[in-house]
Design a protein around this nucleic acid. Sequence first.
DNA 1: TTGTATGCGTTATCAT
DNA 2: ATGATAACGCATACAA
Lengths: 338, 338
Amino acid sequence: MTRRISVHDVAKAAGVAVGSVSRVLNESGYASADLRQRVHDAVARLGYQPDYTARHRRTQHSKTIGYLLPNIANPHLAVHLSEVERLLQLEGYSLLVGTSEHPERDRELLNFFENRRLEGVIASPMTEYRDPATCPFANCKLPVVLVDRDLTHPFDSVLVEHRLGLRQAVKYLLTLGHRRIALFVSSAALRPGREKLIGYKESLEEAGLPFDERIVFMPDSWLESSKAHMAEILNFDQPPTSLIAIGTQLLSGAVHVACKMGLAIPEDLSVIGIGTADTMDLMYPPVTALRYDFQRSAMAAVRLIVERINGVAPTGVRHVQIASELIIGESCAIARKR
Amino acid sequence: MTRRISVHDVAKAAGVAVGSVSRVLNESGYASADLRQRVHDAVARLGYQPDYTARHRRTQHSKTIGYLLPNIANPHLAVHLSEVERLLQLEGYSLLVGTSEHPERDRELLNFFENRRLEGVIASPMTEYRDPATCPFANCKLPVVLVDRDLTHPFDSVLVEHRLGLRQAVKYLLTLGHRRIALFVSSAALRPGREKLIGYKESLEEAGLPFDERIVFMPDSWLESSKAHMAEILNFDQPPTSLIAIGTQLLSGAVHVACKMGLAIPEDLSVIGIGTADTMDLMYPPVTALRYDFQRSAMAAVRLIVERINGVAPTGVRHVQIASELIIGESCAIARKR
DNA sequence: TTGTATGCGTTATCAT
DNA sequence: ATGATAACGCATACAA
């Protein structure tokens, strides 16, 4: 295996010193037209390519950020990751992605990011570490930006307004005359589920309606099926006339069961989905859905982390709110008189 | 900013030489029990953490591989990427992900991967470079494993058996008495679409049925809607009685239009989907679908690249085939007599 | 068995 | 304006 072409080779070929090569190539410091010419000629002739790892170790910045997340297969996260990568590319950063589904791995991964000399971390961890003492993020020397998570430790973050979103959704159903609204969302152990539940409860309370935990389903895993629970619910004396559900598995399972039991949508059951555009589009009738702008969320995350890295961010912690929007489809109808 | 703890600090604290520290920590060469003890004590006391970038530049391997793909938001790719990352983690590799949607970016990214000293590349590029002269992969000094792509240049690859899969699907519909089968898949410019089309044509020919290009829709983008095309098709004198479509956007759009025009599934239109489990599960009735094992595909890709990196792979190119499986749902019925 | 010294490829500092 | 050289942090060949 032959050694790679280095600045030394270029310097020798051009009859100049390595320092001059570096100065020409990086346009730092002075260099005569003649010198520049000779260096560029040599570079072209030898096909020289700079070794970024060597540059990084010298300049102390790797131009790489890490994204810590539970699972890339989750459509929400995949879309966000995709957009973040695209934007980081424009900023000249690379993306190292690491998945982690438990605290020990969180710790290991953050440590790894540090020792690999990444410059920052974007994270959407699977644990929010209510006890700050056990939080691996608290000891992280790298700038951290959280995506839709509330840690007790103060970090910059991008936060979706799930609470307001749910209020919109519930309000819409109330307007249509619904009084029994089921809720199928992710676990309250993490911010997205927790905030949705709060918005849901608030809306019911303001409308003077009781909160019935039996028609609320909040499983830990986004892969879990809602079929069994939906079947049970529909057999209640007063089954829900409407449903708000997350669009990965919970929504589809529930609709599946409802259809199987002979219920028509929206005539017998009104449905509001929550999720990305594409998973939602798979349904018929077109589902009324709560969506938020992943592009904006990704833009905010990238901006926050880059500013923090460059030291142009204010000392205090910053939180960017991402609004939800209720897209009206055809999956909701006026509640049947019973 | 204070300098990081290095082997020198550890050596000084332990009263030994840097070489000894390295030998103890990497368990290379001899070290007395006493020496080991003192080194480990010092490491623990100072909280020393090795700098991987420095190690990499010395050992010449970065333990990192790059994944080049068009778009992480595509569910197929996201699922594959997810699994690849998980497996690479087990093998001690990190994953640098780079998206590219055109040849120039392919070239740039591969170059970047090389100059960043990655050890290998897994790629599912958006161009197959029929002209080898323009193929950026051909000049890549890194081991390359392709995922479901045919380049003229010989690379290790993981290939889904779309052709056989489509034959299964068509055969199934033929058995049900269908004679007009529409096909909505991705463009024939890339292997997945191309192979599917071949399998489709082969099956029709063997059954003595004509190939009608008007009921075949193969758009370039996986995001494109099939609504307009489906609407047109259904107004033909002899509209298709069945449809095979990819499960991202093409299937949903088509079903959407069919439902809107008053057609029932499967009574009036039989449907077979192609895609990942979760996107498919969103539909009712449960759709009969062509699926393949992403886990196996990812396992093969990781095995191929790791073996190639370690030099334990044979000289010749290797291709791993991934079979498709037809999962019977409730979206297909016996063709109506007309 | 342990210590010393060199190289990895850059960039940056300092002479010249 | 340009050249020589140190330094980044580690691993390793070789000397002791």
